[in-house]
Simulated assay, not measured.
Amino acid sequence: MMQYRAYLVGENGVLRSAEAFEAPSDSSALDFAKRFTRLGKVEVWQLGRKIAVLDSEQLCPPLPDPTRPTLTRQ
């Protein structure tokens, strides 16, 4: 297991909080850190190595609901 940190980045670029955790791989760490994107942008680090910057879910448009009919213009 490797040591990672997920940093929640505020709108002005200032770190708002950090979560330390362990994961067996970078991909596992990213899967874990994605849960924090509902709060904002997240930087994922393994010691001094930046793994990724994950965009906030708030910035992403919602996925279409396949059970809801779509409106079309005629």
Rank of each mutant, 00 (worst) to 15 (best):
C60R: 14
R38T: 15
R38G: 06
L71G: 07
R68H: 11
Y7V: 08
M1I: 03
R35L: 07
R49G: 01
P24W: 06
A6N: 01
T70Q: 12
K41V: 09
V14R: 04
V14I: 06
G48S: 14
V14C: 07
E19K: 15
E11W: 12
E43F: 01
T67W: 05
R68Q: 15
K41H: 09
Q3G: 00
F21L: 03
F32T: 10
S17N: 13
K41I: 03
A29Q: 00
E11F: 07
E22P: 03
R38C: 13
A23E: 13
P64I: 02
P62C: 02
L8A: 01
F32M: 10
R73W: 10
E57F: 12
L59F: 13
T37I: 13
P66G: 02
L8D: 00
W45Y: 15
S27E: 15
E19L: 11
E57D: 09
V42C: 04
D55W: 07
D31W: 05
L39T: 01
S25P: 02
G13L: 03
P62L: 04
L39G: 05
P62S: 03
G10T: 02
L59W: 10
L30I: 15
L59Y: 11
V44E: 00
V9G: 02
R38I: 12
V42S: 01
A33T: 06
V14S: 06
Q58Y: 05
K41R: 15
T72D: 13
G13E: 08
G10E: 11
S28K: 06
Q58R: 14
E22T: 10
V9D: 03
T70N: 12
F36M: 14
P62N: 07
R16S: 12
R49Y: 05
G40T: 05
P66F: 08
G13R: 11
Q3N: 04
P64T: 02
E19F: 06
G13S: 07
I51L: 10
P24I: 04
Q46L: 06
G10Y: 05
V53P: 01
D65I: 01
L47E: 15
R49A: 06
V9Q: 05
A18N: 11
G10M: 03
T67L: 07
K41A: 12
C60S: 13
F36P: 00
T70G: 11
L47C: 12
E43L: 03
D55V: 09
Q74N: 08
R38E: 15
R5I: 08
L47M: 14
K50Q: 15
G48H: 14
L47P: 01
G40C: 09
V42P: 00
Y7C: 11
R49S: 03
K41L: 07
A33Q: 01
P69R: 12
D26A: 05
A6G: 01
Q46R: 14
T72H: 13
E43I: 00
V14P: 00
S56G: 06
A23D: 10
F32C: 05
L63R: 11
R38F: 08
P69Y: 03
A23V: 09
T72M: 07
S27V: 14
C60H: 08
D31P: 00
R73E: 15
D31L: 09
G48Y: 12
Y4I: 01
D65N: 09
D26I: 06
A23N: 09
S56Y: 04
T67P: 00
C60T: 13
S17A: 13
L54M: 12
C60M: 10
K34T: 15
A23Y: 05
R49F: 05
